[in-house]
């Protein structure tokens, strides 16, 4: 669990320290960590709130950013299917990037080694999730306490885009992803003066669209006209 917390706690500290600097009261900063419990979405929300975005734009952006959790839910559900719905509903609250990642890796390894499915597997997931949850709550609180002491000359608000850079680096792995990132960034700057942060919304959508289209074009070229026999996505 320790390497997990090593990623979780600094992130929570930063979030707690920076949210009040973006104009979110301490109580709501803390409530967001408990109710939403999704690091990236929380950071994005405070940056948007600090920039004066309307609530609807913040809400929809957080919603879209959290859509990826549905992939985690679908992927992990076969390992939890022996549980009653109530237990699944409870466990779903802890479905963060990190809890999903460590659990799915372990479950797949167990499957490869031929260990029996079911049984106490969900305890591992709950252990990871609850540890991360506690680390996130405590580090948010500590960050709030620390952030309130930081002098204004430190320009702590600039740490938010730097945190985004730290988040972005590991998820960009190929040229198509670089293209999506540059598209979104360029459109955001070009449309920066459109009211209600709608330029930002357009930028996000163009990044997703250009990335997906480029991916489709590339896979067609790779498969080629005679690529029918190749293994790839086999859709029913």
């Amino acid at each position: 669990m320790l390497p997990l917390l090593a990623g979780d706690i600094p992130f929570g500290l930063l979030y707690g320290a920076l949210a009040p600097a973006a104009g979110v009261p301490a109580s709501i900063t803390m409530a967001m960590s408990t109710l939403v419990f999704a690091g990236s979405a929380q950071f994005i929300a405070i940056q948007l709130i600090g920039g004066g975005a309307p609530a609807l734009v913040v809400f929809l952006t957080a919603l879209v950013v959290n859509l990826r959790h549905s992939l985690y839910g679908i992927s992990i559900s076969p390992f939890l299917k022996h549980l009653p719905s109530k237990a699944k509903g409870f466990l779903a609250y802890f479905l963060t990037d990190e809890a999903y990642a460590v659990s799915i890796v372990r479950f797949r390894q167990e499957d490869l080694r031929g260990q029996a499915a079911g049984g106490p597997r969900h305890w591992f997931y709950l252990g990871a999730g609850a540890t991360l949850w506690l680390g996130w709550q405590l580090s948010t609180a500590a960050g709030i306490a620390f952030g309130s002491q930081a002098p204004a000359s430190w320009h702590l608000d600039f740490a938010i885009p730097l945190t985004f850079i730290a988040l972005l680096v590991p998820v960009i792995k190929n040229r198509v992803e670089i293209l999506a990132a540059i598209t979104a960034g360029a459109v955001a700057i070009l449309l920066a003066n459109i009211p209600l942060k709608l330029g930002l919304v357009a930028a996000m959508l163009s990044g997703i669209l250009v990335g997906s289209l480029a991916e489709i074009l590339l896979s067609h070229r790779k498969a080629g006209p005679a690529g029918l026999g190749e293994k790839g996505e086999t859709e029913p």
């Binding site: 879209v64 985004f164 988040l167 972005l168 992803e177 959508l205 990044g207 997703i208």
Partner: peptide, 9 residues
């Protein structure tokens, strides 16, 4: 592409 685009923007 969602987190990539949102963060970059």
């Amino acid at each position: 592409f969602i987190p990539i685009s949102v963060l970059s923007a």
